[in-house]
Design a protein around this nucleic acid. Structure first.
Lengths: 105, 105
DNA sequence: AGGTATTGCGCAATGA
DNA sequence: CTCATTGCGCAATACC
């Protein structure tokens, strides 16, 4: 596969000339491998996370849609009779505030 | 930095003895670099995506909470008077169905 | 000071 | 055949 033997030709620093150099390289190679496995796992998890979030999101959007629908129905029903002076007690309620722009946006 | 010069000197196959081998290697090195840049960008984007989704999620959760609150308020208000036989027209509405367990959860 | 962890890079095999 | 992707080792260097 790979023609190992870069033949580092020791040249200078680090007093190790050959054998514990190898030991050191081997240990680093292990570390590299380990680190890369970890990295891949992290990526995997991130992908999973994205999918989780996407589906949670979908569920929540449906819920909002449903709730909004219900709320609008109720408001209409309410207003239809409120304008009719149905019950004096309803006068206590500030309908404008309630139904005008109840929630934001 | 790296004492390149592995000078594959090999002998075997691939009719290229030395010069277009280098060309080939250089091209591949370019391709590798490009591919890795792309990979890193993709990772970056994924991170961004996760954050986007997380905040969208938070917003949606708040919205659901708010809508639920409003809805409950309206239902109570409604029921308080419905039991009072406020308006004959309300008789058309099946209040059990409306307020019983309208939505899930 | 001495180790592991991370990262950029080149090589070679393999995939399109 | 050319380019893209991937596992791997090396060396630098970040991190403790």
């Amino acid at each position: 596969m790979a023609p190992r033997r870069g033949k580092t030709k020791n040249d200078d620093d680090s007093g190790d000339d050959s054998d514990d150099y190898r030991k050191k390289r081997d240990r680093n190679n292990m570390a590299v491998k380990k680190s890369r496995v970890k990295s891949r796992q992290k990526t995997e998890e991130t992908m999973v996370r994205v999918n989780q979030l996407k589906s949670e999101n979908t569920v929540l959007e449906e819920k909002v849609k449903q709730l909004t629908k219900e709320l609008n129905f109720l408001k209409e029903l309410f207003l239809a009779h409120a304008g009719n002076n149905v019950d004096a007690k309803f006068q206590n309620v500030d309908l404008q505030k309630l139904f005008g722009e109840s929630s934001d946006q």
